[in-house]
């Protein structure tokens, strides 16, 4: 439990707009995720959460800093190439929008079995189809959906297929980039419960990116708060929600609506000004 799986050290990522200007999307972020932990990452839009996730998944090359996965520097070309296969199978990414993250012209079976086919993995359940069926059961869908195309399925089912695809490789690290943002509330709850259940069974390490504070509080062991590319606070969930240290975190928490209308009316919403503090 205490073993560190991924170590992010001073990662900075710039997006070049043109020759002169660059936007600093992620600024000097450092944190560690322990094995089997669920780390939540919250922050407003444009805070650099997704960029950080993509840096961790090697989709972007960070401008500066290192990311160590089990001691392997994934930002280093040579080390990445050396462990390419392991890195590609053991780390999986779930995208926000299931409509665009799965190919509309492929059947559910093919989508789920795609990573197996790419990596020529022989599954314990025999054929790729059997494996896909198993994974589909695992995420709570029945085998009837195997031969359906994504447009025939609902948003929640599509997201489940995306999750099943990520799980079919039995990853050690699962990075979910706002997996519930495009779903409606009842489906969100289903998917969150599914994540919680799956994490308990599989024991994978989970980086969960969201801007829904309630979901993060429910799911995560530790929560990191990002603001303008910086990680302003990182604390265990209970500490963060009961005793926020950073003023931005306090402002963020004050934005949560209260279920009681009387208290809601008296709720004071803070405004965070980065220049002031």
């Amino acid at each position: 439990m205490s073993e560190i799986l991924i170590d992010v050290q001073n990662v900075t990522h710039h997006f070049k707009l043109n020759r002169k200007t660059a936007i600093c999307a992620v600024d000097q972020v450092s944190f560690q995720i322990k094995k089997g932990e669920i780390l939540g990452l919250v922050g407003e839009s444009g805070a650099g959460k997704s960029t950080l996730a993509r840096c961790i998944m090697n989709l972007y090359q960070p401008t500066a800093g290192r990311i160590l996965y089990k001691g392997i520097d994934t930002c280093d070309r040579r080390q990445f190439k050396e462990h390419k296969k392991m890195l590609q199978t053991k780390r999986q990414l779930i995208f926000q929008d299931s409509t665009s993250s799965i190919n509309q012209r492929m059947k559910a079976v093919d989508i789920i079995a795609e990573p197996l086919r790419i990596n020529h993995v022989h599954t314990p359940r025999g054929s790729a189809r059997a494996e896909a069926e198993f994974q589909l059961h695992y995420v709570g869908m029945d085998a009837g959906c195997l031969d359906k195309y994504p447009p025939e399925l609902s948003g929640g089912e599509r997201q489940r297929i995306a999750i099943a695809r990520a799980l079919s490789m039995e990853p050690e690290l699962l990075v979910a980039d706002e997996p519930i943002a495009s779903l409606d509330v009842s489906i969100q709850a289903q998917i969150i419960n599914l994540f919680k259940h799956l994490q308990k069974e599989h024991g994978f390490t989970f980086l969960f990116i969201s801007h829904d504070l309630a979901m993060v509080e429910y799911l995560c062991d530790r929560v990191g708060v990002m603001y303008q590319g910086r990680l302003v606070e990182l604390a265990p969930t209970r500490d963060l929600f009961s005793n926020p240290q950073h003023p931005y975190t306090r402002t963020l928490l004050s934005a949560i609506p209260l279920p009681d209308p009387k208290r809601e009316r008296n709720r004071r919403k803070g405004v965070y000004d980065a220049q002031k503090s």
Binding site: L59, K85, S100, I102, N103, E114, M169
Partner: peptide, 10 residues
């Protein structure tokens, strides 16, 4: 994204 995902899987 599905092409990116596919690349990510190798």
């Amino acid at each position: 994204e599905y092409v990116i995902a596919s690349k990510c899987m190798g």
